[in-house]
């Protein structure tokens, strides 16, 4: 009987050791959004290049986090207004996504290739959390794992108000693209 106990004991510990190789991460992921209205004379685009992203291959858990102040604009005033008037980044410093890769089992992390995936989870922007789902890609190759997706974000869903005065410049829906190149997380 003792041998069974030891066997179970080992099984219990296995997942703890197993985690280390399963988790991939980056601190320099990229997010770009484009909220330019159809006839806007100005391009309203923000770029972020220090997005934190972690993927757990085994469970398919996928999480993103981006500091709002990390979005950079070509026009300084636009960046100021983005933080001050729209995102209120002092009050809501981060945007986050916590979810899972629904078809994680179809992704062969051991074989190079591009795998289309569906992702579902909760997105928090401007202090508002919403359940969202989107399609994306996982690219395995060169010792890295690349996670890509693009999806629309309706500003009103996250209580981001656009005054009528600038309604012809800022679109009510922002196009968001994510591109993160992950490496193994060593703990």
């Amino acid at each position: 009987m003792r041998i069974f106990h030891i066997f179970f004991g080992i099984l219990l510990l296995l997942p703890i050791f197993g985690h280390t190789q399963d988790r991939w991460f980056t601190k320099s992921g990229r997010i770009r959004f484009d909220a330019t209205a159809a006839n806007s004379p100005k391009e309203i685009v923000g770029n972020h290049s220090s997005v934190v992203c972690v993927v757990d291959k085994k469970t398919g858990a996928l999480q993103f986090s981006a500091l709002i102040k990390g979005f950079q604009f070509k026009v300084a005033l636009m960046e100021e207004h983005f933080n001050e008037n729209y995102m209120e980044s002092d009050k809501f410093p981060k945007a986050e996504f916590r979810g899972t890769i629904l078809d994680n089992t179809t992704v062969n992390y051991g074989k190079d290739g591009t795998y289309p995936v569906r992702v579902k989870g909760s997105m928090t922007i401007h202090g508002v959390t919403k359940e969202v789902a989107s399609e994306g890609q996982l690219v395995v190759g060169g010792g890295r794992l690349i996670a890509r997706s693009s999806f629309p974000v309706v500003l009103a869903d996250y209580a981001i108000g656009v005054p009528r005065l600038v309604a012809d410049k800022i679109s009510t829906t922002s196009k968001v693209s994510v591109d993160c190149s992950l490496e193994p997380l060593k703990q």
């Binding site: 179970f8 219990l12 997942p15 703890i16 991460f25 601190k27 934190v52 757990d56 986050e96 899972t100």
Partner: peptide, 24 residues
């Protein structure tokens, strides 16, 4: 022991785990 094993299995434990806190 089996119960504990089930709890410890990643599929169950990591759904709500804060992975971001590991790196961020």
């Amino acid at each position: 022991l089996l119960g504990l094993l089930a709890i410890a299995t990643p599929t169950f434990s990591q759904q709500t785990e804060d992975l971001l806190s590991l790196v961020d």
